[in-house]
């Protein structure tokens, strides 16, 4: 018994910093979110509230959830719609377009240098500081001084299809939201996929050529089936990260003016997580914001369980995702 304990001491010692980090940065905020979601904490009762923190004097209530689910809050239906549009279309770019991109870069383009240049191009937004990236977009889309409308004009897009404002006019604003997030996000999938494609033995691809496949058939019938696990990983990861990410929308559309929502709501780019953020840090309705976040957490957990069910959790935990 003592021996057993001694064997665990060293690993525990090394793991402790990690556990502390997880506890501070993940478990306690989650516990707080759950707790606050059932309270009416706001800037008005803030001081009284923190004195009564975790005592019976705090009245626990389902009021927040009632307001959300009965759409008593008039912003909820639109926010939900925008969130679904955002997650589904950016996911399509991050998980599926990234696959096409990776095939192009790692398989169809034989020239190593060209492939490297293409890879770096797609990595640029990720290695650029977020605020710079956001600013560049704002300049780029400016209808008067920006390049985007001019470029579209050059490509022959008729004048009446060009918006007077990419930021405000739906569906252009929503298209912009998808492009901004998709361009950043695609590089994640690209890195995972290109690594997986490069790890497929060349013999396997050569065998398909000898068997009579052209390059497209080799990609469709040999390479893509072997990327099943990387695809699951990227899809699951990106779903969760998209549900909770709003930083680029916040940086481009702002959260300052417009009754505390920035112009995101009127531009039709108010996603759920940004809405929660705005409720908390523009309207200071901490309780209500926590309830909104909690729903997001639950949706996330449900989706994880669903993905694991669909793809088989145990098989995913087996070694060698790209089988040789």
């Amino acid at each position: 018994m003592a021996k057993k304990i001694r064997r665990w001491i060293l690993p525990l010692l090394f793991l402790t910093p990690l556990f502390i980090m997880i506890g501070l940065a993940w478990v306690s905020p989650l516990a707080l979110t759950v707790y606050l979601g059932f309270t009416d904490l706001s800037i008005r009762n803030f001081l009284a509230f923190i004195q009564d923190f975790f005592t019976d004097k705090v009245s626990l209530t389902l009021d927040n959830f009632r307001r959300i689910f009965t759409a008593e809050d008039p912003n909820i239906p639109l926010t939900l719609k925008v969130t679904v549009l955002y997650v589904v279309s950016v996911l399509a770019i991050n998980a599926f377009y990234a696959l096409v991109l990776s095939l192009a870069i790692a398989f169809f383009v034989r020239n190593e240098v060209l492939s490297m240049i293409l890879r770096i191009t797609w990595l640029l937004p990720r290695i650029t500081p977020g605020i710079i990236y956001a600013l560049m977009w704002i300049w780029f889309i400016d209808p008067r001084n920006g390049l985007l409308n001019d470029m579209l004009r050059l490509m022959g897009v008729p004048e009446d299809l060009l918006p007077d404002s990419w930021l405000l006019r739906t569906p252009y604003s929503q298209l912009l939201m998808i492009m901004i997030n998709g361009y950043v996000g695609a590089s994640f999938g690209m890195i995972v996929y290109t690594a997986a494609i490069k790890s497929i033995p060349t013999d396997l691809i050569n065998a398909s050529y000898v068997d009579g496949a052209n390059e497209f058939q080799a990609a469709r019938r040999v390479i893509i089936p072997l990327l099943k696990w990387p695809m699951l990983f990227v899809t699951a990861w990106q779903t969760l990260s998209l549900l909770s990410s709003y930083e680029y929308i916040l940086m481009v559309w702002g959260a300052g003016s417009g009754q505390g929502y920035g112009i995101a709501r009127s531009a039709g780019v108010m996603v759920w997580s940004l809405y929660s953020y705005s409720k908390a840090f523009a309207e200071y309705l901490y309780g209500y914001a926590s309830a909104l976040s909690l729903i997001l957490v639950i949706i996330g957990i449900v989706l994880i369980v669903l993905y694991f069910k669909i793809f088989g959790f145990r098989r995913m935990m087996e070694p060698s995702k790209v089988e040789v």
Binding site: P201, V210, G212, N214, V222, L226
Partner: peptide
């Protein structure tokens, strides 16, 4: 000619069977 137009059969050292 690309491999597909040569009507060849090949066995690789690693066998290169399609695992899926």
């Amino acid at each position: 000619l690309p491999p597909k137009d040569r009507n060849i059969g090949m066995v690789f050292q690693s066998y290169a069977l399609y695992p899926h």
